[in-house]
Design a protein around this nucleic acid. Structure first.
Lengths: 151, 151
DNA sequence: CGCAGATTCCGTTAATTCATCGGAAGTTTG
DNA sequence: CAAACTTCCGATGAATTAACGGAATCTGCG
């Protein structure tokens, strides 16, 4: 089994660190009922197991001037897949790339400062196949993963 | 303007912290050519400006037993929107919710351990309208945001 | 039963990292 | 040209993390 037993404490620690990775481990420990060294040790074990894959800064796209998010779907054919992947990698505004089953081959998430930038991106991608572009009107805050472990 | 001037150093700092938020600021400073206190001060300023919105742990979904990602699109009508949003919030496996322009109203990203779980989710969401579900075969690593600032 | 061995915890302490301070250098303002 | 402002540096004090040694609990197996 991939999740070789995470107990309640591990999950609580992961939730705390996902919500704010800078919470002192003594404080995390206090919340879950462990000492600082014990908490530290568990965190280290979670890292060694590859469950805790790292720590990252959360940037505010809007504050960075990237106020427009769009979802682009691409329906293409086999021979375009590799060149398309390469092109996506070189487009800095394309922040997520997913290969899909179903009618569409790719789903991309892009962040741009202006509609004009979006047009440029769509035009470039359209060279590989049929694109469908949707603007994101609103996003609910991304949910922390911890919750999904209990169901 | 939203991006009231970020210089090259700010961008380099953001990139470093996005790649690994635990890099000591003395090390970040060394890379960008600043002392530790100067780096610390810039980070604090970026936080105050709301550009650096926080720090979060990166969890490995597969290692957590959530090896299956799916994209669900929902086409629905006005009166279902609020109840749908509420339902999404209560489903722990739904980790992203985007309101879209275009034919589909919502795009969801879900993480599940088994196809059976996905079926449950799809069935629940289908009560609000017409759903289109695609499995994610592969995802390219999410791109750091810093790159998008230079274009 | 009961004794290794392993695991996980705690308290303490050493090492690392971060925050704060005073002061210098450079820029902008009046 | 001076005053105010900004941003930097080096040094120091405060906070956090990492690394012990030892105690308690659990496991496996004679």
């Amino acid at each position: 089994m991939p999740t070789s037993e995470l107990d309640r404490l591990d999950i609580a620690i992961l939730e705390a660190l996902q919500e704010n990775a800078c919470t002192p481990l003594s404080e995390v420990g206090r919340r879950v009922g462990l000492s600082q060294p014990a908490t530290s040790e568990r965190v280290k074990r979670l890292e060694d197991r590859g469950i805790l894959a790292g720590y990252t800064a959360r940037l505010d796209a809007a504050a960075l001037g990237l106020g427009m998010m769009a979802i682009i779907r691409l329906k293409t054919t086999q021979e375009h897949i590799k060149p398309a992947l390469k092109a996506f990698a070189e487009m800095p505004h394309v922040i997520e790339v997913h290969r899909l089953t179903g009618e569409d081959c790719f789903l991309l998430k892009v962040l741009v400062p202006t509609p004009g930038q979006l047009e440029t991106i769509v035009d470039t991608i359209a060279r590989f196949g049929a694109v469908t572009t949707s603007l994101v009107l609103r996003s609910e805050p991304v949910k922390p993963l911890g919750k999904a472990l209990l169901g």
